[in-house]
């Protein structure tokens, strides 16, 4: 369900993030619009994860501004969610982890159970709802993390390398879940080091290199006709990445 007034687009105005005297994100300006699946790619250390945290609000830019330009800008924190590379689950049951997240968003107690149950079924973990979250496998925990984000019905979902530490089967399940969330109308912004995954999921590509936004293009064009030499080298696997 689309909220009546969107918080998108998200606009970055010359955003830099400096740590230890080094510009990890270097004067990036761009606009992330509604609807499409945005995938941020780039070699190791390009600043993808930091950029994602700046967008989500976990980090504050050293200079520049991150602005939600949409109309409904009240309670922005509640309109977006994030899934991390390593999911952090609380020492309680899988379903209780979802209910916890809903409780933090002041969802009424009666609704929490229903929303949590819906979300956990959607990622195919309904049969494990009562199990302790921390004893689930890595792939199951990541699916649970996606269900937790999903339960919140965010308008924007950030995913930082969600499949980096998973095997191919688990990766496929995560990708299916992401596609399903997008199909429900949620804006997807994710980073990945997996070019195959980027090809499968991306509508548009942000290519980062050494903290700068080197190229921003529709996915199709990025992979077939990269505009910059750096991007071409990256696609060919000539830049170091993990």
């Amino acid at each position: 369900m689309r909220a009546p007034s969107s918080i998108l687009p998200l606009v970055l105005e010359s955003v830099s993030f400096v740590a230890g005297g080094r510009a990890i994100v270097d004067a990036i300006s761009c606009e992330i619009g509604a609807g499409s699946r945005t995938v941020i790619v780039g070699p190791n250390g390009a600043g993808k994860s930091v950029l994602m945290r700046l967008c989500h609000g976990l980090l504050r830019p050293t200079s520049g501004r991150v602005v939600w330009r949409g109309v409904g800008t009240a309670a922005i924190g509640r309109r977006q969610a994030m899934v991390f590379q390593r999911p952090v689950m609380l020492r309680r049951s899988a379903i209780a982890n979802l209910e916890y997240a809903l409780a933090l968003q002041d969802v009424a107690r009666a609704d929490r159970t229903r929303l949590a149950r819906e979300a956990i079924e959607r990622v195919g973990l309904g049969h494990l709802a009562g199990r302790s979250a921390r004893v689930l496998s890595g792939g199951e925990q990541q699916r649970l993390a996606i269900a937790r984000a999903w339960a919140l019905r965010p308008e924007v979902l950030f995913l930082d390398e969600p499949t980096a530490s998973l095997d191919p089967t688990a990766t496929r399940e995560i990708e299916t879940a992401i596609a399903a969330i997008h199909a429900c109308g949620t804006k997807i912004v994710m980073t990945t080091h997996n070019l195959g995954q980027a090809r499968r999921l991306a509508d548009e590509i942000f290519f980062l290199n050494q903290g700068r936004l080197a190229e921003h293009a529709p996915a199709e064009r990025f992979f077939t006709a990269p505009a910059t030499a750096e991007a071409a080298a990256f696609i060919k696997g000539e830049l170091p990445w993990t």
Binding site: R53, L58, A81, Q105, R148
Partner: peptide, 12 residues
């Protein structure tokens, strides 16, 4: 230090 980002992301 392990939970911080996740909890802040969830709005705690």
């Amino acid at each position: 230090s392990e939970y911080q980002e996740q909890l802040r992301s969830l709005g705690a």
